[in-house]
Simulated scan of single mutants.
Amino acid sequence: MENKLFKRTKKIIIELLALLIGIIYLLPIYVIVVNSFKNRAQMYDNVLSLPKKLDFQFYKIAMEKMNFSNAFINSAIIAAISITLIVILSSMTAWMLVRTKHVISKIVFFLFIATMLIPFQSIMMPLMQFMGSISRNTIFPMINTRFGLVYMYIGFGASMAVFLFHGFVKGIPASLEEAATIDGCNKWKIFWKIIFPILKPTTVTVIILDLRWIWNDFLLPSLALSSKSLRTIPLSTFYFFGEFTIEWNLAIAGLVMTVIPVIVFYIFAQKYIIQGVTAGAVK
């Protein structure tokens, strides 16, 4: 009897702790959402209180000041092209590194892993200087263009993607490829018709993680883009924070609009994250 009472009490305590942690975790989201409907006076009066009325005027003003439609298109184009190329190039790279049994393949793979340990802040200034020299000395404009930003995102996103794909590819039997070769498939067909479809869980994982990173990234676009017409959503949101004043209600409304697309995508695809990561780790 005492043992059952102890287990029940322990379960209740764990559930209460989980509830408390959940409330603490969701509190910032609550603060952002409720304050996006308030004016400055209501915000300064009580940050945690509910708005007096659900007025979407601040969202409308924020969209106009941010030029939200243009910023959304820029972010969508950059994210879509970057993620597509990261997935294709990284999956191909990981496949060849696994199937090529040579010491050079191991060295290349560990170089990919090593680059994940380098903080971006330590290389951002040399990177911009190097990209600037490419723009000046070649026909490829790397600064203040979507092309240059996509190119840099591919470089920074390849390491993690290769790492995830590499772990999954190791679990795919080589006999599948040997059978396809006997049937007359070349390497191109083997990859696209056999290997790439099997990589679906890891592919979705890479897409989700890179979408969250690229969509919310501020630092790299702030260094690489200067034209107002090329601003991404995080850059457009930043301009509510002036040197002397901050338009908090408009900035918060802009932040809510920024995170909504990622949250919606994440809700529908979240199950693939654990599936993709654990599949690569176990195999």
Results as ranks from 00 to 15, higher is better:
residue 40 R to A: 11
residue 51 P to H: 02
residue 205 T to G: 01
residue 201 P to C: 05
residue 73 I to H: 08
residue 193 K to R: 10
residue 182 I to Y: 07
residue 27 L to N: 00
residue 212 R to Q: 14
residue 179 A to W: 08
residue 102 H to A: 13
residue 278 T to W: 02
residue 85 L to V: 15
residue 124 M to K: 14
residue 65 K to C: 01
residue 278 T to M: 15
residue 168 F to T: 11
residue 143 I to G: 06
residue 175 S to R: 12
residue 19 L to P: 03
residue 215 W to D: 05
residue 153 Y to F: 09
residue 150 V to Y: 10
residue 176 L to E: 07
residue 169 V to E: 12
residue 164 L to P: 09
residue 140 F to R: 03
residue 246 I to A: 11
residue 122 S to W: 07
residue 252 I to S: 01
residue 56 F to P: 03
residue 148 G to I: 01
residue 271 K to F: 05
residue 11 K to C: 03
residue 239 Y to L: 08
residue 198 I to M: 10
residue 98 V to M: 01
residue 120 F to D: 10
residue 203 T to C: 11
residue 277 V to M: 15
residue 158 A to N: 05
residue 195 I to S: 05
residue 282 V to N: 13
residue 142 M to C: 01
residue 48 L to M: 14
residue 276 G to N: 03
residue 51 P to R: 04
residue 194 I to F: 03
residue 23 I to M: 12
residue 24 I to V: 14
residue 114 A to G: 13
residue 160 M to V: 02
residue 138 T to S: 14
residue 39 N to P: 09
residue 66 M to A: 02
residue 37 F to G: 02
residue 84 T to S: 14
residue 250 L to W: 06
residue 164 L to V: 06
residue 73 I to D: 04
residue 256 V to M: 08
residue 172 I to D: 03
residue 193 K to G: 00
residue 69 S to I: 11
residue 94 A to I: 11
residue 257 M to H: 04
residue 236 S to D: 00
residue 195 I to Y: 05
residue 281 A to Q: 08
residue 180 A to K: 01
residue 242 G to Y: 00
residue 45 D to W: 11
residue 55 D to E: 14
residue 130 F to W: 12
residue 205 T to S: 12
residue 174 A to W: 07
residue 176 L to I: 06
residue 110 F to G: 00
residue 187 K to E: 14
residue 2 E to R: 11
residue 67 N to V: 07
residue 221 P to R: 04
residue 267 I to H: 07
residue 123 I to V: 15
residue 141 P to Q: 11
residue 207 I to V: 15
residue 205 T to P: 07
residue 143 I to K: 08
residue 35 N to R: 05
residue 160 M to F: 12
residue 70 N to P: 01
residue 6 F to L: 15
